[in-house]
Design a protein around this nucleic acid. Structure first.
Lengths: 342, 342
DNA sequence: CTGAAAGCGCTTACAG
DNA sequence: CTGAAAGCGCTTACAG
């Protein structure tokens, strides 16, 4: 009954391919082939091996395979946060795009920190990944160096790379920030504030898009930009709304760099009987599920975060597989959702 | 300049420990010890090896280490969803509890499916994990069998195991559902509906708690239970609120099995001028960030999801490390948040 | 404190 | 279609 250790000192004690082969009456390498390249083996042999696998409850040892084949079948994904639904949606997409039988996903949370990203990369390099998915376009010189030295394919997610050789999947954060600002300008708002938190590269690019639109309309004013490094939360959004109304009494619209903040602002206005959009218009970014439902519903930018993950992982898998990608820079676009809050 | 392949046919082409050892003028095994058990090596040797590591840019090969040591240093976590913030918070906690230099986390999304869970487990078993974190208490017989056969430590997350030998971290879903129902009863509501979606084991246990409280108060009525298998969303919450009001005209309170649904219900009432709680009271479950901010604020159960992940991973690490856990069943509790909606 | 040898469990050319 | 041998890059007892 017990396939026990039988005096063996090392190893995991699990059934090995060698035992499967012996049980099936073939050589180890034939057993190996029967499992990984069944078309190279006679049907009779394959059946014998498959039977032995079932009877012995054989589970392949991934470490041994990785070592022998020099192929890890590991993909690394680094995201700046695991509490931000934008990035968990990206991970969900990556997850779905990866055939789990083949590839294994290693997830790292960089916490918006270059140092953390470096540390994670160094750790994950030990797994000799076949490729890596990175959030954003800008990384520390050390990270760039490690990536270059490793020679593995890298796909950047969220924004579009300037360098056409670089692999990237996302949309133009700049253009999206620009588009929603132009929407507010077209609506007739003049004193449009921008509120940014976290100040990661995406927020800064959205701010660039905002600034450009304001300048083009002759409405630019540095006083209208409120920037804080704190993480975005509903509570912070409420606080920054209050701050904006206090310090900018003539402000007639606020573009928040994401929906979390904008939701806080809308709740704040509801509680203080500030009419949105009559007293002040509010716009967000990302189109979280609640945005279409709250009262008033929130004008925002719908972003393809799940698809970014899905397409980025698919692109990476293609490149790893040696396929020439149709595009190295996949623009998934964004959609302006005009709603009641503006 | 180039540490090139030099005729080697196999392998990754990366610097090996053997090369580091040669560079440092010591044996491979001394180099190995200098890195993994530095206290067993003289300071001079350690320095030489560390220098060689830096000069050659050595990165250990995890697969080789796993194979030689029969220790994968891999932990698997299986969750039913990657779009539900409850489970992404759990993963966030797990992530933070694992020292990344040592252990690697493999995440699986079972999509609330037993078959998927089985498939993932089978795949992840190939990595010979040191331990596994599972969501929920009930699993398919196949999964139970595979787990038993693998003999690896398992920690169940979210609810508390009945069997005192089983490792579990969470809180009593039953008691929490019971507590919020009793709160509604104490407030004087009589026709209290329960709305459950997804119908996973946690929802069913919350429903049990609800039913028990209703029976104890002599208020039980099967008509008050609305159960649908669809995933919980804000849109579904709005729809089920409408349905409840339509089919149960005398209903004076609704306990939704989670905040996502309850938020949809509150937005629905806002849009249709249904006063909450005067016309109908609404309660949720999980205390999502928006719940304290929306108008009216939502009465709900605050659940320690991040801590569940953190403590479950810590417990698993302890057991893997051979430590006897203080408790095998860690009750992290829950908190009733009484707010404006009831 | 240090080392020579064997072994972990697979896959890879190379033959036949 | 099948097999004997070598090797992937580490760590593990066992000596000294």
């Amino acid at each position: 009954m017990s396939r026990s250790s039988g005096g063996k000192v090392r190893g995991t004690g699990r059934t090995t391919l060698e035992e499967v082969a012996a049980h099936a009456g073939v050589s180890t390498m034939t057993a190996s082939r029967a499992l990984s390249q069944p078309q190279l083996v006679s049907e009779a042999t394959r059946t014998k091996v498959e039977l032995a696998v079932v009877e012995l409850g054989y589970v392949p040892n991934r470490a041994a395979r990785a070592l022998a084949s020099a192929q890890s079948r590991v993909i690394v994904a680094l995201v700046p946060s695991l509490s931000n639904v934008v990035f968990t949606a990206v991970l969900d997409g990556i997850h779905d795009a990866i055939e789990h039988g083949q590839y294994q996903l290693l997830i790292g949370n960089t916490r918006y920190s270059d140092a953390e990203e470096e540390k994670l990369l160094l750790t994950y390099l030990q797994s000799n990944p076949d490729g890596i998915l990175l959030s954003g376009l800008t990384h520390s010189p050390q990270v760039e160096r490690m990536l270059a030295a490793s020679r593995m394919p890298v796909v950047s997610m969220m924004d579009l790379a300037d360098d056409p050789g670089e692999l990237s999947v996302g949309f133009s954060q700049h253009d999206a920030g620009n588009a929603i600002t132009r929407h507010l300008i077209e609506r007739g708002y003049k004193r449009i504030a921008f509120v940014g938190a976290q100040l990661d590269e995406r927020t800064l690019r959205r701010a660039d898009g905002y600034r450009e639109a304001m300048q083009a309309a002759g409405l630019a004013d540095p006083k209208l930009e409120i920037m804080v490094p704190d993480p975005s939360t509903i509570a912070l959004g409420a606080e920054l709304m209050r701050h904006a109304l206090d310090t900018l009494p003539d402000c007639d619209a606020v573009f928040f760099c994401n929906d979390d903040l904008a939701h806080g602002a809308i709740y704040y206005c509801q509680r203080h009987d500030i009419r949105v959009p009559q007293d002040v218009a509010i716009a967000g970014f990302n189109d979280l599920p609640a945005s279409a439902w709250m009262v008033p519903s929130l004008t925002t930018i719908d972003t393809p975060r799940y698809r970014i993950g899905y397409e980025a992982a698919s692109l990476l898998l293609d490149v790893i597989g040696g396929k020439e990608p149709r595009e190295r820079r996949i623009d998934l676009g964004f959609t302006l959702r005009e709603r009641e809050s503006t």
